[in-house]
Amino acid sequence: MTKDTHDELPLYEVFIRSKNGLDHKHVGSLHASDAEMALTNARDVYTRRGEGVSIWVVKSTDIVASSPEDKGNFYEPSDDKLYRHPTFFNLPDEVGHM
């Protein structure tokens, strides 16, 4: 596993849905030469113990991320707006995943 090989292969982020009805969750990343290989690699690396029913892969460079410096103006304004949280309802168990 030389460093050179990895430098040549682009990085992909892997998202796995563990069962129907749940969301795809980010589980990690891997290297692959294209999307098809990323998908099979993801299958081999991340679903060996029956973790998934569906896989998404996306090139890491295609993900647009917020930067830590934006923390203040992005998130803090909502801190004092408790009325936006639906915390006053009791959810029946039958509703399941929300």
Binding site: M1, T2, T5, H6, L9, L30, H31, A32, T40, N41, D44, V45, R48
Partner: peptide, 13 residues
Amino acid sequence: HAPILEEDLALTN
């Protein structure tokens, strides 16, 4: 010993 970690796992799987 595989060329990359991903393939290492695939071969052993």
